[in-house]
Nucleic acid binder design. Structure first.
Lengths: 325, 325
DNA sequence: ATCGGCACTGCAATCGATTGCAAAGAAGTT
DNA sequence: AACTTCTTTGCAATCGATTGCAGTGCCGAT
């Protein structure tokens, strides 16, 4: 049922119907009530496409994760999914719809298509993956674009992210404070976030050597890698995992190897996903403050949409002490 | 850059540009190539809104979770999030965009608005929550609507779901087969899925009594409830949790109480979320086959969009044997 | 020379809502 | 009575693409 139909029924023009439904003051109270009642009765729901086309605004935000390297990581990673959940909450609260695009970048046009499609008022990207250059290029001409990820000097696109270097430092400091000195970093050091975590970890470890156990980030691969490493003997006494999911796989491999956590090996994770509090033993981890982070992302984006200036921001990570370290 | 601009540059009409870009055969090869080249050069990306309005099709599917009772459950529940992930994958593969709507049903119009907005070609709902009647009403007039959830007799809307009654039966049979006879069901028996799981569990338990420990589904509440129950003494020797997340909280409470799993208490979860394989001990659970389930949802929806007939389906659950039971 | 047929291309309507401008009618003023 | 002012409504343009139908020009056939 469209406005024109209602107009015919009410014996007025579509213009009047449009104005009546939007509460435009230049339509008499009488007519307005009459049309409103008729609209309710017949279940009139205006076509949003037409409206958006005319209004040049859509009330929708694109939410996309470029999946450059790790195709699988994002689906299983509760961290990304809860980031998505928080963002969805905030956007819905502000009356925005969400156009979800899981992007497998096949060429460097994907982001152009998204921003030029006219279907969204702004774009939120989760992770830079290996698309840093594309993002930079598009951000130069398209303002309402905010990215969750790392911030490099000279960078043009707006990012919100947590301070991964500091996070790594905190982890190392805590483990050294426990008297551990055979440190192991567990994870794939390629993605920029993880690279920073490792850098901070090494930095704060100072003269203490840091072994790097590099592996794919999916749970099975991590579990296998840790198992294989433990089989070599000469186990580390502390593991800093690049993510909580990796830490949980490590926990299992350690248990299977008959090692006690934290007695024999202390384990520190990263993210503080919901389940981290519910492993056994509960996971000590570096929390990324998603509540603040996602709020900042949305506020920054809305500011950009409104044409106001906005800047990148970094939210500090925080050590969450539980039983595993 | 819109088609009209390009048309002006190329010295042709927008009609010709439109036809050239869409590869319409009645545009000469020469002109077509010339326009294509010009389009590439100037980065022309047609406005999708206008296109969709004219074509009366959008290339987008709405994905919504009505959150009737448990506001918080869905965000933290990895099962729902991974369902969403699978669906997103499948839809993206088929060239659809996804309009994500986290719905907090305030009135019974939310679904009408969604289907009548003109912004999507079809709607996928995850869970019926307490919106069964609304869904029934809208499904009666709107075909491309598929729901993940339970299927009741006389039901008009299409559902894909797993057989929760059978799942409950399998759990009970397995636990009885282990010689356990002090059975406890853990979770909120109100939502239809959980009610079915409990019903099947009771059914297969036969004369063996089933204790029900009813609690909210968020991890802290479950953990507290199990802790309190164990403090009473007279512990059960088998727990069937309504979800894996609940089972993991139970695992932790059991460990804290000094009980061995599965020695003292066997634990069976439900869903088989990714992390279920990585708890300690790894969780025996009833798998909901999301790969099949989500594929069916998407296929069924596409069939409905194409105007073909389609029916509801139930995917059988499966016992995944790990160490916890 | 005329005409039929073919290959292109453009005009203009269309999708469904919004909105500036003008006009009609009512009310008030002198 | 004539004129202004205000309220209320409708006409028609607009957003940007798609597409049926008509028109142009060129070819060979008669």
């Amino acid at each position: 049922m469209k406005l024109a139909d209602l107009a015919a029924m009410a014996g007025v023009s579509t213009a009047t119907v449009s104005r009546a439904l939007s509460g435009h003051p230049s339509v008499s109270k009488t007519t307005q009530e009459r049309i409103r009642a008729l609209a309710r009765e017949h279940g009139v729901r205006p076509n949003q496409l037409a409206r958006n086309l005319r209004m040049r605004s859509t009330g929708a935000i694109a939410l996309a994760m470029p999946l450059g390297h790790a195709r699988t990581q994002h689906l299983t990673d509760p961290f990304f999914l809860s980031l998505l959940g928080f963002l969805a909450d905030l956007l819905v609260d502000r009356g925005y719809d969400i156009l979800l695009s899981r992007v497998l970048p096949e060429n460097d046009e994907w982001l152009d298509r998204l921003v030029d499609s006219g279907r969204v008022d702004g774009v939120l990207l989760v992770g830079q993956s290996d698309q840093y250059d594309t993002i930079e290029r598009v951000a130069a001409r398209y303002a309402p674009l905010v990215v969750w990820g790392v911030n490099r000097p000279e960078q043009k696109h707006l990012t919100i992210g947590s301070d991964n270097i500091l996070g790594g430092r905190i982890a190392a400091t805590h483990l050294l404070g426990l008297g551990r000195n055979r440190l192991l970093f567990l994870g794939d050091p390629a993605p920029p976030e993880f690279a920073d975590r490792l850098a901070g970890f090494r930095d704060a470890a100072g003269t203490t050597a840091v072994e790097v156990l590099s592996c794919e980030m999916d749970p099975d691969a991590v579990h296998a890698a840790v198992g294989a490493r433990l089989a070599q003997g000469d186990a580390p006494d502390a593991i800093f995992a690049a993510s909580d999911v990796a830490a949980m796989s490590a926990l299992r491999a350690l248990t299977e190897a008959g090692l006690d956590v934290p007695g024999d090996v202390a384990v520190v994770g990263y993210d503080d996903v919901t389940l981290a509090a519910h492993t056994s033993p509960p996971l000590t981890t570096i929390r990324q403050d998603l509540v603040t982070g996602t709020r900042l992302m949305v506020e920054t984006l809305l500011r950009r949409i409104a044409g106001e200036p906005a800047t990148s921001a970094i939210v500090p990570p925080e050590l969450i002490l539980r039983a595993s370290a």
